[in-house]
Structure formats: C-alpha cells, structure tokens
Design a protein around this nucleic acid. Structure first.
Lengths: 355, 355
DNA sequence: AAGAAAAATAAAAACGTTTTTATTTTGATG
DNA sequence: CATCAAAATAAAAACGTTTTTATTTTTCTT
C-alpha cells in the first residue's frame, strides 16, 4: 500500500538531449517536433512523441523560460487589508484562486499569488511584475474608479484581466458583477415593500463598484419618484466591525433607516450583530438585503434575502480570459459582467406591515 | 501626478554583462561580487555594487533558475473542498497565504499556490512539485493521521513545513495548534460549568487533529471522573451545512447535549443556525464553545466563548521555517505548537443554572 | 630581487531550451 | 540521369546566470 519508494537518488530527469540520444535525431528536431512544428516530418514527430512518452519527458520550465523570456506564471494580486486585528476579510479570495487555477489546469502556466497590503502596494507590485517579467499575465481586483494599475498595464501592453471595471473608457479585458443592477434591484425591492428610509452600507467611494452601487441605489429612488435617503449611505472598509458600527450609528439618527442594503457577507454579519445587540429583529423591526458570494447568508438567523453570485465562476472566467489575452486576443472580446441571482428568504416588507 | 509614462519600448533590462561592460570586469567577477563571494576584492565589490545600483540591476530569475536548478518558488498547497455548492470554506487560507508571503518578503523566493481538491490530489501535486522541481520548498495543511505527503517528502529529502502533525514519529518541520489542549480546555470548562452531555463537532477522523481533539475531549472527562459522552461526537466536513445538520440530528437524541464544542467558525455558524431554527437559545438552553481563527465569533448573536488563534501568525511561522529549511537547517529545530487564547464571552454554565 | 605562494580576476563551460542558419536528403522535372 | 527545388534534419548560437578551471597580478619570503 505504501507509496513506491525510491530512496536512491533518482536518475536525472530526461531532457531534450536524452530524447536526441534515444531517437538519433538532433535536439533541434526534437524541440521542433515537441512544439508540433510543421517542418518536421509526421513520422519522425510520432517517433519522438513516443520516445518522450516512454521516458516520461517533461519540458524543463526553467530552460524554456530562459530561452523564451516568458515566465509561464499567471500572477494574481491578493489584497489583505492589514485591518484592525485579524478580521474576517478577503474570505472569498480562495474561491477566486480556485477558479483561476481551474482555468490554468492543463496549460503550461502556474499561478503565483502576490499579497498586497494597499492600493499603493498594488501598483508597485504590478510594476515589479511587469519590469522584472515575474509573470506573463496579471489578475487583480479591488478596482478603483481611477485605477493606476489599469493605466500602467494598458500603457505597457501587458496582458491582464481585472475583476471589476474602472470608470475610464479604456480597452481592457475584465470580468465584473453588475453592481449597479444589484443595488438597484435591492433598493427597488425594498421601496416596493414600502420602505422609504433605506440605508446603504457601501465600500469606500474610491472603489469603482462603490460608485456603481450608489448609482443603482439612486436610480431606484428616482424611478420610484422618491427622494433618495442619501444621508443613510455609509462608507468604510468591508469588515464585520464596520458593519456593526454602521448599524449602531445609523439607528441613532433622527429618522433612522427601516432597511439595510449590505455589500458583502462579512459586513452583513456585522450588521446583524449590531441589530442583535440593539434588540432589533430582522423581518420585524428592520429588513436587510445582502450581497453574498460565499453562500453563507442562508445560515444567518434569520436567513436573509441575498443577491448571490458564486465567485468561483468569476475566477474561472478570469483565468480563461487571461489565457486568451496572453495568446494575444483582443481585449475588447474579453469582457463579461455577471448578474447575481436573487435568493428571497424574507418578504422584505417588515412582515407585511409595510404594504 | 500621473505615473511616469514610458511609451517607448524601454531599454532591455541590464544584465550581468551590462555590468561587465560598465565596470570593465568579467562577468565571472561580477557574478561573484554580487553573491558576496570572499574571493573578490572588497574595493571591486563596492565598485560593482555601485554600478549595479546605478543601472538598477536586478538578477534575472530565469537565468539563475536554469543555472542553479532552483526555482525560487515556495509552493503552498491550498485545499478547496469541491463541497456541495460553494460553501464558506477555507476562508482562513488567505491569512495563511498572507503570513507566508510576509515571511518571504525581501527574499528571492516567490509564493506559488497550488489548489488541491482532495487528499489524493494533494499527493499527486506534491509529487509533481518534487519531480519537476516546480518549487524549492512546500507548505501544506490538512494533515492526515498517516499523511502520504509527509512520507514522500521526508523520503525525498525535500524541504517542507506542514501545518499540523501526523501521528508518525518522523523528523520534519511543522507548525501546529495544540488541539488536544484546546479541546481539553473547552470540555473541562463545560464540565466545570455542570454540563454532562457535551457534543463534540469534529472533523473527519482521518485528519490528525481530529484525533488530537478527541484525545483532549476524552481526557477532560477522564480527569473529571465522568464517562465521556462519546455518543455525542459527530464527524464530517467543516462546512456550515454540516454544523447545522449536526445540531438538528443531535438534539433529537434521547439524551440530547446541553453543550457543543465546535471546530471552526464556519461550523459554528452552522451550529448557531441550527439552534436558532430549533428555537434554542445559546446561554439559556445550550452552551457553545468555539474555536476561531478569523476573529468572527464576537459578532455572532450572542457572542460566544472562543479559543482564538490568529492564523496569520502560523502562516508567518510556516514561511520562516520553510526558509530555514531550504537553507538546510535541521527540521528538528523547526517545530512550533501554538496554544490559542481563551476569549470568554459567555459563562458557559447555562446562565448559572448549572453550578 | 628572484621565486613561490596567495590573491584577484578572466575564460570557458554548463544548465535546457528555442530559433536561426546551414546542411543533407528526397522528390520532381526535363 | 543530371539538376534543382523542396523537404527534412543538423549545427550553432543565444537566453543570463553560476561554477570550475585557468591566468594574471600582488604580496610575501629569503
């Protein structure tokens, strides 16, 4: 049962030279054959492939890398907010990584992860990746309304796919969630339920999707012919702490909100915590609609209505797009915006009292 | 303000040859000087460093890699359970990655992440990393009682650090949490509070730390001279779903538990969800003690008593140990077991009714 | 001051590829 | 069957390092 042991120093891995010796062809021919070059005769190609298979030849990534100048790395920038203590944050990133790695499976590319602490760190890291050729392509998120990374990479013609769109009109590959739509839908639903004082728990305004959500929020009010409760928009990091504190602050207002639109599951948990400690009950005193990408809202007590978008799907698309982008495909063709699906778990009209 | 633009194709990055031309020394001397070899005269060493700094020389990783046979990659195996749908899972891994990357900062090593779907995939990936030299060192977690990855890597003398210990007596670098101790402490606390029917929500038994926790659980009962409620031990994946379902099942028993010891925050959330939907109140009908590594338990309603261990610290230690291990340090010297700290948020004796 | 030893530097080879250029073999043409 | 073009293969160079070996320069000894 135990794994096959080879305690003895195993024979050095076969190289292209090994194949040359075995088959009698020159290393040049071997190389071309393995790359499926049309200049090598089909019959010898087959011979060489067979030999390669027999000795278990695996191209040496380092040799390839040196010669071609490529690194065969797809880099992902992973933000970790050096937030207060260690907060529940960035949890969905494992899903992104999982998705990207799925897309890369079976290709020559490996995924390298670069942790970044803040926006400036992100730019610096991106620049280093480009300048030093640390990777052949780049994936990143947390897109700012005016994101210097996008500027840099577009300018340098470096292949990348962003998770999120900036507010500049540039041609670049991206994957995004339709935040304007989601915020609109959530707000409209609450308005239809009779709510008028609606709080929006939003990320910092320099983030592009914060603006998207603000837009959707405002549009819902506009379409309903009602003045938007813009005084109930709070902005901060997306931590649980922030969610909790926001609720505590907002409910002290002269005209407190009767409903909350939340940005992600960690903030939502904080909001629920805040409501709980103030003795307010979801579905009775207030309504909450969340956005969720790790499918956790079902387990909150009570379960809450959610716009759900499995983030791994975005990750997979990011990876696929990056592969195509590295092949030279036009970025204009590589764009996709996902609409989350609504999962109704509450009536969202204070148990019917509002309509 | 805008970033310095260089639209023109920038001059090729300076190499060791560039430095040779500038300084007039041979590339051999340049190389040795940059490596701080003692054979080169201090004065020329300084000259060469100065030149290197002036032209912004950065060693080409690919060239180094090819020549030395090293990859300068520290690989991390990241498990993603292809669990039902997309569950809240592996969330703490961003902290691990963050910690590892912190440790690697300023070194020549980069972090590459390999996603693995299950144990078999983990072994296969580890083998590929070793055989193809995809990395110079490896970090992984989810250690089984008998873990083939540890066997493999010890056998091949491949540098690695495991997050967790297997049950075999082998010499290998590792970082762990004292799960036996934590489970014992939690159980003892509940026993002292008067609980007798205590449920243990545990991971699958093939995981090494599941056994550790079982040991601690049993020891607490033994020390109290009470028969352990082993019939209340449930085992499964660590999903929120599992936590919820476990509660629902357990509370239907003839002699249901009055207290729960939970394994991680995601399971705890499920447990709380289950209790909530059965109308049981924490601190009134049942007590819950959790283990937490992302500091989220404070936000559950009500906040619950927790053994807390910031996982990023483990990650940092993993990275530090791996660096030393790759330098050839004796694995015996590279072991650390952390004891989480108890954060008391509940009396854990059913509001005093039990003592 | 000659010679040897030590120190400093240079030259050359190697790592495993890909690519450009050169050579050989094959096939077609008249 | 001789000639030439096309096809197939081989040789050589290159990518940027490190390391081994060789050479030059300096320092020490007597």
């Amino acid at each position: 049962m135990a794994a096959h042991m080879h305690k003895t120093r195993r024979t050095p891995a076969p190289t292209i030279k090994t194949l040359a010796e075995i088959t009698g062809y020159s290393i040049a021919t071997i190389s071309k054959a393995l790359r499926d070059s049309p200049v090598v005769a089909p019959v010898t190609r087959d011979l060489i492939f067979k030999a390669a298979r027999e000795v278990g030849y695996q191209a040496n990534a380092r040799g390839m890398a040196l010669r071609t100048g490529k690194s065969f790395q797809a880099a992902v920038l992973m933000p970790v907010t050096a937030a207060r203590d260690y907060e529940w944050d960035g949890v969905e990133y494992t899903q992104v990584l999982s998705g990207v790695s799925q897309a890369l499976e079976g290709t020559d590319y490996r995924m390298s992860v670069h942790v970044i602490r803040d926006a400036a760190d992100g730019v610096e890291t991106a620049r280093r990746i480009v300048d030093q050729g640390l990777a052949d392509g780049l994936i990143f998120s947390g897109i700012l309304a005016d994101d210097p990374r996008i500027d840099l990479l577009v300018d340098q013609h470096f292949p990348f796919v962003s998770m999120g769109r900036c507010r500049k009109d540039l041609d670049y590959a991206h994957v995004d969630i339709d935040n304007e739509w989601a915020a609109h839908a959530a707000t409209a639903r609450l308005l239809a339920g009779g709510h008028r004082r609606i709080a929006l728990v939003n990320p910092e305004r320099r983030l592009s999707y914060a603006l998207d959500r603000l837009d959707g929020f405002a549009r819902a009010f506009r379409e309903a012919g009602i003045a938007a409760s813009v005084d109930l928009v709070v902005e901060g990091d997306l931590s649980t702490h922030f969610g909790r504190q926001s609720v505590i602050d907002l409910l002290q207002a002269a005209e407190p909100p009767t409903a909350f639109v939340c940005i992600n599951e960690s903030t939502t948990l904080g909001v629920l915590s805040g409501l709980g400690s103030l003795g307010r009950q979801v579905g009775v005193d207030v309504d909450v609609i969340a956005y969720d990408d790790i499918n956790v809202s079902a387990y909150f007590t009570p379960p809450i209505t959610t716009f759900y978008q499995p983030i791994e799907v975005l990750g997979r698309t990011l990876g696929q797009f990056l592969l195509k982008r590295m092949e030279g495909e036009d970025p204009k063709a590589l764009r996709q915006v996902f609409r989350p699906t609504l999962i109704e778990r509450q009536p969202d009209n204070l148990g019917g009292r509002l309509v």
